[in-house]
Structure formats: structure tokens, C-alpha cells
Design a protein around this nucleic acid. Structure first.
Length: 271
DNA sequence: CGCCAGGTTGTCG
DNA sequence: CGACAACATGGC
């Protein structure tokens, strides 16, 4: 078990169940169980301490990075709040959301699955993908399958996922990542537009999936994915702003606005 | 039955 | 460029 003391700006529900990761489920006691990096853990926040149950002390840095603990979200939220009064309200409402540092290939695949889909069904497809093709862990849970494994699969193999038209995109992603035709680590440090173009070599990866992969899988926090909610929010709440105006931590602003918008749908349906 | 869901693609002006 | 249907599946 690993314990991180005096953790601030972290809300587990808003971070683990806000549509950036699809691998966490809340338990009756409020804690979360999930798998990342082929490690199954239970996560809880008690009295300001973040507890990673089932983790080895040797992985302390890994889990610190996963929850992005080194980044000063209080400072970032304060700075973002000065940009726009509505952003200030959204950031306050959604405070405690952090950008997870997920594995790049997992982020890529889950956001390919996310297109024209809803979060509930995305979770189901991801779970079936892991159970069908991921490594079985000691506690009976399943890791996310790696690109090498998935590159050997066909669309027919993926039929049990019921992923629909997205299955062929998953196969293309696996093959291009496994062969090195698409270099995910290159995307970590490359010029942003070049990184986006690298990911968009994959069929079924457009600007939004690329941006989500960069934000949630490669921690490119300047990314600003525009999905249906964000397009509505930009038009209704920030008509005078463009994504560029949100600065180097635009991705964090994006999460605040996305969460705030989803929790207040009436904003967009009035009149 | 029709509409929508953290979109992308192909096609047509 | 911009608009628009099609794409699989499942919930409402």
C-alpha cells in the first residue's frame, strides 16, 4: 500500500469518472478499483491522504505521476480563473479534477472507441476488450492489451466487443503502433501539430481523438479537445474566446468546462 | 419508432 | 473550405 499525505485539489469521483479514463469503478465504500500499467489497485482518499491499496512501494513515482501530484493545480486553477468569469465558476465547480497520466496506447484506443458513443457503452466495450485480449492479473482483473497483441487480431476477432464500425479503427491503430509507423513516444515531445498529424495517420483518428490521446495519454496539457459538449460550451459560454486563448494549461480548463457543462445541461436547452 | 452518444469519413457543392 | 448522410450499438 502506498500513501500520499496532504494531497490537495483531488476529487476521485470527478477525476476517475469524468470521461478521461474508462477503467475505474466506484465501490460501495466510495473508493475506486481499477487497473493501470498492468497493476490492479484500489484507490481511496481519506483525511487528505491518497491511498493506493495493492500497490508496491517501488511504484510510488508511477502512481504519483498517474495522479499528476507534482503539478500545482491550485495555482493553475487560480490563473485560469482570471481568464474569464465563467471559467472561474466552472473551475470552482469542477475543482479536484486532475489530468491522469494514462498509458498512451490505452488512451488512443479508448478514445477511438469513444467516437459517436456514450460513456456507459464505452466502458462496456473497453471492459470486453480487456477481458478478451488483456493479460489476466493475479486478482482476476485484466490489463489493457498491448499493441503487439492487438496487431494480430482481425475485425472478426473483435466482434464480441460489439464496437461496431470502430473495430476496424482499433485494428489499424494496433498495427500502426506495433509496426512503429505511428510513434506514440514521439508525440510526447514533438511540436503539437506534428504530434497530432502523427496520430491522425490512423484511420478513425481525427482532431478530437488525437487531442484526447495527447491530453490524457501523453500529458500534453495544452490540448483542447472539442467534442459536442465543448462546442456547445464555446458557442454559448465563451463566444468571444478561441481555444488558443486558454494558454499552456488549456487542457485543464477544458476538463473544468466539460464537467461543468455536462452537470448543467439546462444551460444549453433553455429557450 | 426516432434521437442521441467525449466523431470520422467520404462525397458533393 | 462547409454541409451532410452513413456508420454499429444500445438506452431512453
Amino acid at each position: 500500500m502506498i500513501v500520499f499525505r496532504d494531497v490537495t485539489e483531488l476529487d476521485l469521483l470527478n477525476t476517475l469518472d469524468c470521461g478521461q479514463s474508462f477503467r475505474w469503478t466506484q465501490l460501495p465504500d466510495g473508493s475506486f478499483s481499477g487497473v493501470a500499467f498492468k497493476k490492479s489497485v484500489r484507490v481511496a482518499l481519506e483525511g487528505g491522504s491518497l491511498i493506493i491499496d495493492g500497490a508496491d512501494e517501488a511504484d510510488r513515482q508511477l502512481w504519483s505521476d498517474y495522479f499528476d501530484l507534482p503539478l500545482d493545480y491550485g495555482k493553475i486553477r487560480s490563473d485560469l480563473s482570471e481568464l474569464h468569469p465563467v471559467l472561474k465558476e466552472a473551475a470552482q465547480y469542477a475543482s479536484g479534477i486532475r489530468i491522469l497520466r494514462q498509458e498512451p496506447y490505452e488512451a488512443l484506443c479508448t478514445f477511438i472507441i469513444s467516437q459517436n458513443n456514450n460513456i456507459r457503452r464505452i466502458k462496456g466495450i473497453v471492459q470486453r476488450l480487456c477481458e478478451g485480449f488483456g493479460e489476466k492479473l493475479s486478482d482476476g482483473s485484466f490489463a489493457f492489451p498491448d499493441a503487439d497483441t492487438m496487431s494480430a487480431l482481425t475485425v472478426e476477432d473483435l466482434a464480441p466487443l460489439r464496437a461496431g464500425f470502430r473495430a476496424k479503427y482499433l485494428v489499424d491503430a494496433a498495427q500502426k503502433v506495433a509496426s512503429g509507423e505511428v510513434d506514440l513516444e514521439y508525440c510526447r515531445t514533438a511540436d503539437y501539430d506534428a504530434a497530432r498529424a502523427e496520430l491522425m495517420k490512423i484511420k478513425g483518428v481525427g482532431t478530437k481523438v488525437a487531442d484526447c490521446t495527447l491530453l490524457f495519454g501523453l500529458h500534453r496539457v495544452e490540448a483542447f479537445p472539442l467534442d459536442v459538449w465543448m462546442k456547445r460550451a464555446m458557442k454559448t459560454l465563451f463566444p468571444e474566446m478561441s481555444p488558443k486563448d486558454f494558454g499552456e494549461y488549456a487542457g485543464i480548463a477544458q476538463q473544468y468546462i466539460f464537467h461543468y457543462s455536462r452537470m448543467h445541461p439546462e444551460i444549453f436547452s433553455e429557450i
